[in-house]
Amino acid sequence: MIETAEGDRLDAKDACGFAETCSALLILAKPGIVAAVTLSGFTGMVVAQRGLPQMETALPCSASLLLMTAGSAIVNNVLDRHLDEQMDRLAPRSAALKRVGSGKVLATAVALIFAAVALASATLNLRVTLLLVAASLSYTLYYTLFLKRHTHWAAVLGGLPGAFPVLIGHAAFQPHPGRASLVLFLIMLIWQPPHFWLLALLHRDEYRAAGVPVLPLIKGERFTRKCIYLGVSCLLPASLLLHLAGICSAGYAAAATLLGCAYLFACHHFMVDNNRAAFRCSIAYLLLLFSMIVIDLTT
């Protein structure tokens, strides 16, 4: 059982209103991550169907992903609340958690997760449901409680929850994982470490204050930059596997090549003096790549 800090409890006279509660929960649900996960899952659906998926399956699958991701993100905030208080960039989340109270926030998270499982169980197949549960548990327990606190390689070893959504989307339409879904899974596994390391470089002093052993603090900035270059370089051949496997067109391959080279150039250019821009380029790369896959297979 997760204990609620005494300072997180709110007296009735201080309890925030419905609108304020919803606003705080929205912050804690990490909407940017929810949007990226939903896009990843939808890309898995498109790849499974080689075109636009049927809405009667795509909608409950997307809703299940959205609910599960939001619930897991909120649980992550509760589990990490003492670490987050040491990090200035997470001040809005810490304030939102204190405003609503850890008990109410955790109850909401559990409700969202159960709703995701119930929806998937009622409308989708067993494999989708099991993958949703695996994604949530691997994020909240395996990554948040164990890897993040004990190893500077957490971004590598903890990539599974971030890569599961493409498998979930694919599993909603295909009984068995295929080459396409495994390529998407590989892309997500490769993309996540350099993405996080860019963030760690940008906020390494805050991670030091929180006692989180991120790569720049343990191995140094120079070693971290080399690892980022290596990861970004591996994304280009990984993205081209979709064309080599006969899934996406030559037009996609050309666009993916240009995008991969642009991302690598952006890392080299911006990491000299602007890690924030490099981090934003990382987000843009994934959104553009998955958008290109969807467009290529639906047009």
Rank of each mutant, 00 (worst) to 15 (best):
E3C: 05
C234V: 02
R9T: 10
H170C: 08
A200N: 09
E3F: 09
I187D: 03
P213N: 09
I33H: 07
G251A: 12
L184N: 03
A63Y: 04
A48K: 01
T257Y: 02
L141Y: 14
D84G: 06
P161T: 03
E85A: 15
V232Q: 07
L131E: 10
Q192K: 06
A95G: 10
Y285I: 01
E85H: 05
L145W: 10
N274H: 15
A35I: 05
A115C: 12
R280Q: 10
M1W: 07
Y142E: 05
V110N: 02
L184F: 07
M292H: 02
Q54F: 05
G41M: 07
A5Y: 12
C16E: 05
F196V: 09
V37Q: 09
R225L: 14
P31L: 08
A154C: 15
K98P: 00
V47A: 14
T108W: 11
D11H: 11
G51T: 01
A24P: 00
L147P: 10
R89N: 03
R89L: 04
G169N: 13
I113T: 13
Q49W: 02
L79Y: 13
M188T: 09
F185Q: 08
E206Y: 04
A171S: 14
Y229V: 00
R280L: 13
G7Y: 04
A278I: 01
L67E: 05
L198T: 11
R208W: 04
L79H: 11
R50M: 04
Y139Q: 08
D80A: 08
A254W: 14
I283H: 07
M45V: 00
S62L: 15
W197K: 07
G162L: 04
A135S: 15
C22L: 14
L157T: 02
A63G: 14
A238S: 12
N77P: 06
V232I: 15
F18C: 06
C61R: 01
Y139K: 06
Y142S: 05
R127D: 11
D14E: 12
S72M: 02
L217Y: 10
I228H: 02
Q54N: 04
Y143F: 09
R93L: 08
V212A: 14
A107I: 11
I247Y: 01
E56P: 00
P194V: 07
S233L: 13
S64A: 15
F290A: 00
I168E: 14
L199C: 03
Q54R: 06
L160R: 00
F196K: 00
A266F: 07
V46Q: 01
S239I: 03
S181D: 10
A96W: 03
S239N: 05
L198Q: 14
A111G: 13
P177S: 08
A5L: 15
C234L: 15
L287A: 11
L39P: 02
A250M: 09
V100C: 06
E85G: 07
I74D: 04
R99P: 03
M271A: 05
D80C: 02
F173W: 02
A111V: 10
L97W: 05
H150D: 04
F290L: 14
V117I: 15
G44T: 06
G17P: 06
N275S: 13
E20R: 13
R225F: 09
C281D: 01
A254I: 12
T4V: 15
